[in-house]
Design a protein around this nucleic acid. Structure first.
Lengths: 103, 103
DNA sequence: TAAAGATATGTCAAATATGATATATTATCA
DNA sequence: TGATAATATATCATATTTGACATATCTTTA
């Protein structure tokens, strides 16, 4: 992961270990972030395919529009749990999730 | 998911939506639990393959032995985030995680 | 263009997950 | 067997994530 991408993420609120300050992100950190990004993108894709607004999806997952927006924009405050629960709520199977992660 | 399995999970501390009380778990709920179970099993597999004790793994992921035990036994108090972070800390790639989920 | 619809961002109290600690249970092996 | 190592379970103060709400910034369309 390059410096530019890192700055972009930091601007979004991501925090990185100080040991990585100059060395870039650890394998672990970037894999984790990449994973979330992929699931976020997948969630938005699924929602729009199903012609739902964020407000409508929020109802389905018993959350709020603002949290859906955060899920889809990769806000660091959202958990993998909520991301995956949301995908499952839209009918995604575990296999689909695996595919999204591998892609 | 059958009643017996559900009882077993409930004994472990899992809570299920009341609407599913007699109907069993929703697709979504069981997919989520299945996902966690698979990752839990994978974590234990990886740790033992690498000949680490729970105490040693705890150090690696900056947690405690008790939490590692909970990760591996599928305690409902553990998040997918911590599970996946732990797998990544043990050198698992996103593709490996995808494989574990699909298996 | 303006209005309406949709999405994004910021904040916060409440809910949930966390590491730590203590202790119980289960394996291993002398 | 009994001692020691490993794992499991319980509890709790602290930290993080949550839905809700307000409001800002796009996007669409009339």
């Amino acid at each position: 992961m390059n410096k530019q991408k890192k700055n972009k993420l930091e601007k979004k609120g991501w925090k990185f270990g100080s040991a990585e300050e100059f060395l870039g992100l650890s394998e672990e950190e970037s894999a984790y972030i990449e994973l979330k990004m992929k699931l976020s993108a997948n969630l938005r894709k699924l929602r729009t395919e199903q012609k739902l607004t964020q407000v409508e999806l929020a109802k389905v997952i018993k959350s709020s529009q603002s949290r859906v927006a955060k899920l889809e924009t990769g806000d660091p405050s959202v958990s993998l749990d909520l991301l995956i629960r949301s995908l499952l709520a839209l009918g995604t199977s575990n296999k689909d999730i695996a595919r999204a992660i591998s892609s």
